[in-house]
Design a protein around this nucleic acid. Structure first.
Length: 158
DNA sequence: GCCAACGTTGGC
DNA sequence: GCCAACGTTGGC
């Protein structure tokens, strides 16, 4: 895959106790630091474009679900935490010359009045193919189709 | 806290 | 390159 010219849609997981949609609201923008999985990194490095829509998903939460929306605001740059010795995301194999890890910047767009709960998503037939619902799916950054994005947004208000 | 499913590591 | 051991993810 490589960067296309069409609108892209993504789902990005975050643990709300670490960084929630409200944290993103306060920050305005943030580098999506700490991704240490090659497949997820490759999505950020190769495919995510400024203006792509991002569903912010709260994982390891009670209940888990999509908490809000963001937009990609900057193309991937080296993840600064990879070379910060005191960061929990420090990777001794990374260096300024060979950063290994990259991250995009995202900008807060909206926090949903109500979480779109995982359980609610499971019940929607039009979302049955969502990667998130696939058994054993742990990928922290996932592509979403335009139809799935629209179907998810339709669930955002009661 | 449990544990299934997955990714990574490292010995061979 | 195989694969067992280990660490992590994340729903429950």
């Amino acid at each position: 895959m490589s960067k296309s010219t069409t609108q892209g849609y993504w789902l990005m997981k975050t643990e709300p106790e670490v960084f929630s949609i409200e944290d993103l609201r306060r920050a305005g923008t943030t580098l999506w630091e700490g991704v240490r999985n090659y497949q997820a990194r490759n999505f950020m490095m190769n495919d995510m474009k400024v203006g792509d829509d991002v569903l912010v998903y709260h994982s390891n939460a009670n209940p888990p679900g999509v908490a809000g929306l963001a937009k990609v605001s900057r193309l991937a740059v080296p993840d600064p935490t990879a070379t910060q010795r005191r960061s929990p995301y420090f990777d001794p194999k990374a260096s300024a010359e060979k950063p290994i890890w990259y991250c995009v910047e995202v900008r807060f767009a909206e926090a949903f009045p109500r979480l779109i709960a995982l359980e609610q998503i499971r019940q929607r037939p039009e979302l049955k193919d969502l990667l998130l619902l696939r058994r054993g799916m742990r990928l922290s950054i996932q592509p979403v189709t335009a139809k799935e994005f629209a179907a998810l947004l339709a669930l955002r208000s009661p």
